[in-house]
Write a protein that binds this DNA or RNA. Structure first.
Lengths: 343, 343
DNA sequence: CTGAAAGCGCTTACAG
DNA sequence: CTGAAAGCGCTTACAG
């Protein structure tokens, strides 16, 4: 931990100036001229003395004052459905890492996927004067993004995308296709999808990718075999129950690992053995998937990279660049829950 | 979302003053006098006009400017091992909720339980001029807390405690005792503990509570039956392997649900059925425990409340009060993994 | 009851 | 190359 000399007040620009017998503005200029060469800011000698003392005193500029002057806070607001969702927490780790490298600090808030809460949290962040937002919980068809654009708030989307806006996501369509290919190859012909929340692009794209590929392979899948659900374990369980009431598929694709785990529980309750009687594939490859009693096949999405990418994109948006949507490639991890060949 | 009139600059105190034809300081005074009565700040009439216009224009004070003037940022730094740990993420939800009510914004950062990273993240937060810290990753025997005290940085501990410092934690000793009582009653006599990281008070207290109670019940437990481990699934698996090489206990207490899940995997690999051959109990009752194929018994710790309490304690520390350690009561949830009576 | 001034810690044209 | 001034948006004694 850096010690700034005494245990109390931080040292200011003026303190340094006084000690050096020069004007504060000179100190400021030096500290801002890029590293070694103090081009035009001060003489090489002065610059050296300033930097030396700043280091010695552990000077760190007051962000409040800087922000007030420059109207840039280097604060970034991040809004997610909830941080206790492993997927979002991991993306946030990527954000934190990238932002820290840029000297940007991040606020995260949970919206619980509630539209009112989304607006409330965004208001709090704007009241804090963040330079912009990373939005991880956008709902399809919401007018929120248009409003933000009208208010000239810089932002990028993460995790979920929306047409026409910059975003960092997993290539969810591709993810769904990978699962379709895999199950088809294993010989499955009767499949169902636990599709997630219909307001989330992740759910829609994964499902659409799967269904389209399945049909192009010559497979058959009725709309009634696609069941929308919550993303959590309980949601997955309920969806699986609903599916089992209609028919008994040989394979289940859940667009989220937690939903998949819930589905596994339901199958077990029906006396079915996952991997033998029914194959199950999840999505995200959260750290748990591989560690379950019956290890879960899952599409690995590059969560950390999605977070990092969101920060990079945001910087470009802030600089006024035109930024498009970035979709990072996923990969399928096959495990016991779906490894078995269908006779 | 509140709209502040135009899509660009926020409205300032001066804007309001100009529009009302009064001095900015009067506006400021009114806006600070507690709600209805503007005692001494301005006439009732003026106060009313000010508040009315402030509302109409969607005025929100600039926190940068306020912070600069008052030397209080209403920013709170939170440091956790990692947010992708469900336990810490949930505590953070409690923090966010309580802090928002107080108009305080929070930064969270991950230290990954690395001492160097802890200091680095704390430095970043102090450079941001947070009013203080909530520390969720304190290591026993670290000198960090003494240094922070010397620097007069207000802070409270959360999740893990340290003697002599204010903290909000689960009553981990009690949690361990509850497990000992439960396993003893079920007729177990040969037990092992997957104890977690020895630098974390959570691990130490849960283990100590269990062992002390076990012995006071007349039970026998050798030190070699207490295996320290990482908190994650892989750590639990390794610890269980180590235990099974020595002996075969009839029950396993893991101080963390993830470690418990890893242990369940190891037992399964050895052909043992959890709940029938070996009982397993975890800690924290994360949302997964109840949803596992074999539902996991676990000590429910009040994670949300721990987060909320940490914020309350912090406020009191900030006001200069003397604050002690608060330990919230846990409760044991018995499930299939340990429900069976030992013959 | 209200105004006027000073100042929090910084940056940034503008002179010289 | 360096100084001096103005100002970002607020608060807070101090007058009157």
């Amino acid at each position: 931990m850096r010690d700034n000399g005494d245990g109390g007040q931080a040292v200011t620009l003026k303190d340094l100036a006084v000690e050096l017998g020069i004007h504060p503005s000179t100190v400021s200029r030096v500290l801002h001229s890029s590293s070694e060469i103090a081009k035009g800011a001060a003489s090489a000698a002065t610059a050296e003395r300033v930097r030396e003392l700043a280091r010695k005193r552990g000077y760190s500029p007051d962000p409040q004052a800087m922000g007030l002057r420059t109207r840039r806070t280097r604060l970034l607001g991040v809004i997610v459905p909830r941080l206790s969702d492993l997927v979002l927490a991991t993306m946030y780790e990527g954000i934190e890492e990238s932002a820290a490298e840029l000297g940007v600090s991040t606020f995260v808030m949970n919206s619980l996927d509630d539209p009112g809460e989304q607006r409330r949290k965004i208001d709090i962040m704007l009241a804090r004067r963040v330079d912009g937002l990373i939005i991880g919980d956008v709902h399809l068809g919401s007018s929120l993004l248009q409003e933000l654009t009208a208010r000239k708030v810089p932002f990028v989307l993460m995790n979920r995308r929306a047409a026409g806006y910059p975003s960092a996501t997993c290539d969810d369509v591709l993810g769904g296709e990978l699962v379709a290919d895999h199950l088809w190859e294993k010989g499955h012909r009767k499949v169902s999808v636990i599709a997630g929340e219909p307001y989330a692009s992740t759910a829609i794209d994964r499902t659409a990718g799967f269904v389209a590929r399945w049909r192009s392979l010559g497979g058959d899948i009725a709309d009634s075999n696609v069941v929308w659900s919550r993303f959590d374990t309980a949601g997955g369980r309920e969806a699986a129950e609903k599916i089992l009431m209609n028919c008994q598929p040989t394979a289940l694709f859940a667009v989220n690992d937690f939903a998949a785990i819930g589905a596994m529980g339901a199958l077990r309750s029906h006396g079915l053995t996952v991997g033998r009687d029914v194959a199950v594939v999840g999505f995200n490859d959260t750290s748990l998937a591989a560690e379950l009693p019956i290890p879960l096949s899952s599409v690995r999405s590059p969560m950390l990279d999605i977070g990092r990418t969101a920060v990079q994109l945001f910087q470009r948006v802030l600089h006024g660049e035109r930024v498009e949507a970035v979709a990072l490639k996923p990969a399928l991890c096959v495990r016991e829950s779906s490894a078995q060949e269908r006779p």
